[in-house]
Simulated assay, not measured.
Amino acid sequence: MEIRHATNPTEAKHYTTDQLRERYMMERVFTEGEINMLYAHDDRMVIGGAIPTSQEGLSLSATETLKTSYFLERREIGIINIGGHGTVQVDQETFELDKRDCLYIGKGKENVTFYPGNAENAAKFYFVSTLAHKEYPTQKLAIKDAEPNHLGSIKESNERTIYKYVHAEGIQSCQLMLGMTMLEPHNMWNTMPAHIHDRRSEIYFYFDMPEEGRVFHFMGEPDETRHLLVSNEQAVISPSWSIHSGAGTSSYTFIWAMAGENYTFTDMDFIDMKDLK
Rank of each mutant, 00 (worst) to 15 (best):
H197W: 04
Y263F: 10
I77W: 03
N8C: 11
Q234V: 06
K144R: 12
W256R: 01
K277A: 15
S240L: 10
E96Y: 12
K99Y: 07
M273E: 13
T94N: 11
V128E: 03
L72M: 07
E2P: 06
S69A: 06
Q234P: 11
D208V: 04
Y136P: 10
T225K: 06
R28K: 15
W241A: 04
I143L: 09
T94S: 12
E76R: 01
I255A: 07
F95P: 04
L229D: 14
T16N: 04
P9K: 05
S54A: 13
P222Q: 02
M37F: 00
T191F: 10
M1Y: 00
N232E: 09
K99C: 14
M192W: 07
K140E: 14
T225W: 08
M192H: 09
G246E: 08
A257M: 03
R226D: 15
T94C: 06
D91N: 08
T181L: 08
H85V: 12
R199M: 12
L103R: 07
T87Y: 12
A194N: 06
A235L: 03
I3A: 03
C102F: 04
A50I: 01
T7C: 09
G33D: 08
L178I: 04
D145W: 07
L103G: 02
T253G: 00
L228C: 09
N121L: 10
V230K: 07
P193T: 05
E147P: 06
Q234A: 08
G48E: 00
L72S: 06
T113W: 06
T63I: 03
Y204D: 05
S59R: 09
S61K: 10
I79T: 00
L276Y: 10
K13P: 05
E147F: 15
Y136A: 09
H85Y: 13
A146C: 07
M258Q: 11
Y206S: 11
L38N: 06
K155N: 09
M268I: 11
G248N: 05
G260M: 05
W256V: 02
E76Q: 08
Y263D: 05
H150K: 13
A235R: 03
Y39D: 05
A235W: 01
T94Y: 10
L178H: 09
M258Y: 01
R44H: 13
L66W: 00
F127T: 00
P185Q: 00
